[in-house]
Design a protein around this nucleic acid. Structure first.
Lengths: 347, 347
DNA sequence: CACATTTGTGTTAACGTCAACACAGCATTG
DNA sequence: CAATGCTGTGTTGACGTTAACACAAATGTG
């Protein structure tokens, strides 16, 4: 009667298992880790003892002894944005295959929270890191990252760090769709996108400028809005762009949140797409599909991005992590739908 | 020249800091934990030594010694569903306030992955758990949870466990909107929602049945579709419902993913809302806002849910966790918009 | 059959931290 | 001024695990 009570009082350790199975702690450890050879009979006795006691290895003790946590971290700006959650989910499942958990951390674009998370990594809570910082120019965050001595994979950020990198090809897709609009006859094309403080914003603006320049359309900075990537910003800036005279005949919404805002602005003004305005979105499959007409978008394969990030990190977590940094650029596609057309009126 | 190299070879420990500051390891530990009193001069000397060496406490060693990880876990079915990511984000920020990290784990509705995650909790990797299992009937998962001896908060699941609980009031909202449709003249109302293996599905079906029964409309099980909560299922079942004769004049899409599928089905069939069909959705703010006409939805405050879950867990993580389980039910609201109207034709 | 190799297991000493204990020095009190 | 309490710090021994080492027994080799 006292026995089971005593047993449940304290969680069983490897020593309790060893005693019950009549073997040494070393042998139990070998059974738990499964790496070295153990006689079949012994293994079974130990397994039985573990089951009987409800033994669970103490993760912290293992981590301390082996200096590994079997956890990777993923730093993202905002968990509720499908772009991030889809990538994170794909990376998570790749890492799960090699027995790693993925600690996804949403910084809400706060420097404080980003640095807190990086500190957790520096304290040995994670063996590797996937990173998408909210501001490439933040030197404090960059320095914190540079001090963390674990393998790292960067996603779509230009940081001077010893790390693998996955880029998306924003500029090329933006150049192509802008050229396409110009061919249709558009001359005044607005662009709303993420800040140039992060690579996606920078690249999208670059692609747009290149296409405009190649068509001999002088740069009109008033048509470029790139300060924030929020729905509210997309809404405000779309309203402002559509209040200009002459009014732009097309708007490129570079980013899913911005697209949502732009659509709302179009609805507010009662404009008809594509007759009054051609609209292009990005990184959204849900809304762009279901709106009427469906919206032309620049699309990336989020699962491919996540899998690539996960695989890059997995390679360094498993093997020796000495290989030189890898650098992958994944393409974006343009999904042509009915939200773009030649501009109305005299060209 | 040799000194800095030697130093960077191995990460500094509390002993290195103690030696450099000329104090004992105990004192350094006191400075790190910040709990006990340390003389101001001493504290400063230790802080300087830590900064100079780039010391970071070794999390695994702390965890092992204190038997706490300062990490909570959140088990959800699918990270990419905004319902879950919004709740998780709110819970994360509440727990961050008390210095806890939140390990969000997306099971993809796989028993295997759910049990793996629960095992991680059982191994001491987490001090507390927020749980939304994908199938309440899964006894293996329930048993695994019951063996984890850490504070738990359940979200919208009916499990016989010693845990705090946060419920949403699905049935009442569903009853009200169904009654409202009946008052408008609808007689054949389809319902597509989550499986009754989880509480939200069960409750929604119950509310619907109660309203239909109260109006003397005999239960027609053919109008109830509750096997999965996916976009594809919503699409298929909406198509099937709309192929019945007589055709339902209203459809309740209980769940955001199902709503997306239902909207697609409506588009496929070229039906007009609300003239040909009244449509009600749930748990979606993005699409229902931007569609034309905007869709009436049953809405929950996801941030409130997340904050409540986080606060409940925080209370047990901070103080003594002996208090009896708490049980909170949060209301749902109905957001009336233009997707519902009286049915066309002879009533 | 002597010797080398392989296989399986026990022993032991850390890993880095913190909590309990001890105690010196100083302030406070009657 | 002796007795008492308080503050601040040093000492020490786990916490639960694994890796290195040692070695006995079993197997293979010439």
């Amino acid at each position: 009667m006292a026995d089971p009570n005593l047993r449940s009082l304290r969680r069983p350790t490897i020593r309790d298992v060893a005693a019950r199975a009549g073997v040494s702690t070393g042998t139990v450890s070998r059974v738990v880790s499964g790496s070295t050879r153990v006689a079949a009979v012994t293994r079974q006795r130990v397994d039985e003892a573990m089951a009987a006691l409800g033994y669970q290895p103490h993760a912290a003790a293992q981590n301390m002894r082996t200096n590994r946590s079997r956890i990777a971290g993923f730093l993202i700006p905002d968990l509720t944005n499908p772009v991030f959650s889809q990538v994170a989910k794909a990376a998570e499942s790749v890492l799960a295959e090699i027995g790693y958990g993925l600690f996804i951390f949403s910084s809400d674009r706060s420097e404080r929270r980003e640095i807190d998370f990086i500190a957790m990594a520096a304290q040995g809570r994670m063996d590797g890191l996937i990173v998408s910082v909210s501001d490439e120019g933040n030197e404090r965050v960059r320095r914190a990252l540079s001090r963390v001595k674990i393998p790292m994979a960067l996603w779509d950020r230009d940081l001077d760090l010893e790390a693998d990198v996955v880029f998306s090809e924003h500029a090329r897709a933006m150049r192509r769709i802008t050229s396409h609009l110009i061919e249709l006859g558009h001359r005044r094309i607005g662009l709303i996108t993420a800040p140039t403080a992060i690579r996606p914003g920078r690249e999208r603006v670059r692609g747009y400028r290149e296409a405009m320049g190649a068509a001999g359309l002088g740069p009109d900075d008033n048509l470029i809005r790139c300060d924030m990537q929020t729905t509210e910003y997309g809404y405000q800036q779309a309203l402002e762009l559509l209040a200009l005279t002459p009014r732009p005949t097309a708007i490129l919404a570079g980013g899913n949140e911005i697209l949502y805002g732009a659509v709302r602005a179009v609805r507010t003004l009662g404009l008809s797409i594509p007759d009054d305005l051609s609209l292009v979105g990005a990184d959204d499959r849900l809304l762009s599909d279901l709106l009427d007409p469906a919206v032309t978008i620049i699309e990336r394969d989020m699962r491919e991005i996540g899998r690539t990030l996960g695989a890059m990190l997995a390679r360094r977590l498993e093997g020796p992590s000495e290989a030189p940094p890898r650098h992958v650029t994944l393409t974006s596609e343009i999904l042509m739908r009915d939200s773009i057309a030649a501009p109305a009126g005299p060209v």
